[in-house]
Design a protein around this nucleic acid. Structure first.
Lengths: 346, 346
DNA sequence: GTGAAAGCGCTAACAC
DNA sequence: GTGTTAGCGCTTTCAC
């Protein structure tokens, strides 16, 4: 609990002025080697570390960047963080992150608190635009993640429409006809995912049945399972808002004795690492989570540096279909098809 | 990019002194309602937010606590964070966390940077003790997580010995005799886990074969799989350093055509949420990750408050066995048992 | 090369 | 009740 030494202590011990010490620490200037030695010695002996708060106050820079995530329990986000962390460190920045999931109510406050401690942030939030505006007006560089930003704010995300569209195409090609979407409306990307899927199906004269989960989580996917599987018009394929929902749903299905993909195909979005280890392995769309974080951080860092022309558009990362075992080609001679079904090729 | 208003701007606009504004913001004092109204109006019009850095510099408090984790990609740690976050928020603290995984080398620097921005931290690290000492000497309250702290530093973790011991008992009871441990020596809890398992087996006259994974991760579990399964003395049960390794191992086993638990039993430690959804569902030991975070944060907050007598010991959380489907009773008439095997009851 | 002095934005005595 | 003032620990002109 000893008091931390200040720059003054170092100066006194080294017999120089505090200005000299300051310049030495920041390598702003060189001194005679005698002086440098003395200062360095004093620093070592005192175990002096400069106080970043004081420095920040005056320079206006903190050397840290922040990432605000919705739910750190979702591996998609942790991978985004991993990616962001890597490039932040490469550029000499420390990454601080906060998880807003636990209390949406205090989100703005949390964000505000964080924004004052960093040089810029990557924000992933469901906040309405007008609240967002206040954050943006704060003058800190911000990159929005997972949603398209208003006005001239850079943002990054996957092409959610394309992701869902390719899922639609896959399922139709595999012979599925009754396709359901397990959506989570409050999430920003939900709309685009739903649209992408709908449009794909519409082009084949099909419609999507929408179900609403209570959150983009495993438990919610599990919870909604019975409602979907026991409905009188059971779908033959399910596309989930994300992998978490899909995994939960698969767990629920197993408990209900429904087998995947024999009875029903299921596909997620995100490509979280665990999708490979479910039973069956989850077919999904890779959104390149880590790259998302990396590119987002690059965007942010570029803004902070201010040298390059500020990027203001939306960067869309291309999704990629990941075929695994939770979907399969639906046998042409379908199950409980009652009357004459118009020819289903292949 | 407009300049942020300062307390002086507010004071000027409201026609009062900056001291008044300061006291008003912090509700340190009440004023005549006329004054309060004016000040509030000025704050609103200017969209003033006080600068926490400046405040921190003088009060010495930041209103934030930090958590340092080894790998945010491991759901065990994300759950610890969740728990810690919850109680931090309940107590009016913001939680910042950093992931040191990406560069162990800069860990100390990262830690130092973080420690200056928070009122205390929960640290989970593999740092040797002498490095740790320097951190502890910094005067910030610290709680060590996942290892027993030296001297009078509070620490928290599961009873790793007990966790591994109960796994040993289970496996022996189930009739397994050739038990292997997939350890990760650099991790602090590894030693205790290995010891717990060894002791349990020793009491039954058995020995544990130790393998070393390259990291406590899925990929490493997957990677080591063939070496273990294709060894000439294939074990009949594997206990893994943690669930991540176990999940990876199971994936590898599946690829090799080895079926679990028929051919080999496998058990993890941590009880990460995904363990329920692997195939088969993973038998593991619940370490109560969230509670670990919660209790750790309580310990920390108590230290920061300084009112209660400082806790200095090690808090051990009791582990609980979670039986699922990756282990099973081994048939008495064992597989390739060559000669007469002494009666194995049930 | 080196140091003195003026703050960064704010809080905390202490006066009035 | 309200204002004055002295810093928190540091950086940064600007003289010497």
């Amino acid at each position: 609990m000893k008091k931390k030494p200040t720059i003054r202590d170092v100066a006194a011990r080294a017999g120089v002025s505090i200005a000299t010490v300051s310049k030495f620490i920041n390598s702003t200037q060189r001194f005679t080697s005698a002086v440098e030695r003395k200062v360095q010695a004093a620093i070592d002996e005192l175990q002096y570390h400069s106080n970043p708060l004081a420095r920040s106050m005056i320079t206006g820079k903190t050397g840290a960047v922040g990432v605000v995530i919705l739910d750190i329990g979702n591996p998609h986000f942790t991978n985004v963080v991993k990616g962001a962390n890597r490039v932040a460190l490469e550029h000499g920045y420390n990454l601080l992150f906060v998880d807003t999931d636990e209390n949406q109510s205090r989100e703005e406050e949390l964000l505000d608190a964080l924004s004052r401690r960093v040089d810029g942030l990557i924000v992933s939030t469901r906040m309405p635009e007008e609240q967002l505006d206040r954050l943006l007006a704060s003058g800190k560089p911000v990159v929005l993640s997972g949603r398209v930003a208003p006005k001239g704010v850079p943002s990054i995300g996957i092409d959610a429409h394309a992701a869902a569209y390719m899922i639609g195409e896959l399922l139709v090609k595999q012979g599925h006809r009754k396709i359901a979407y397990l959506g989570f409306a409050p999430a920003r990307p939900d709309t685009e995912r739903y649209r992408g899927l709908s449009e794909s199906l519409a082009e084949h004269g099909l419609e999507v049945t929408r179900y609403e989960v209570g959150g983009p989580t495993i438990v919610e996917g599990e919870r909604i399972c019975s409602a979907v599987l026991l409905s009188k018009d059971k779908p033959d394929a399910i596309v989930c808002y994300n992998d978490m929902v899909a995994i939960g749903f698969m767990g629920g299905a197993k408990a209900l004795g429904v087998s995947i993909p024999e009875d029903i195909s299921i596909v997620g979005i995100d490509n979280i690492p665990f999708g490979r280890f479910t039973s069956p392995a989850l077919t999904t769309v890779d959104v390149q989570s880590e790259r998302l974080g990396e590119e987002g951080m690059r965007l942010l860092l570029r803004q902070i540096a201010g040298d390059a022309p500020p990027v203001t558009g939306h960067v869309a990362i291309e999704p990629r279909l990941v075929m695994r075992d939770s979907t399969r080609i639906r046998p042409p001679a379908a199950v409980a098809a009652p009357a004459k079904v118009k020819g289903r090729a292949r």
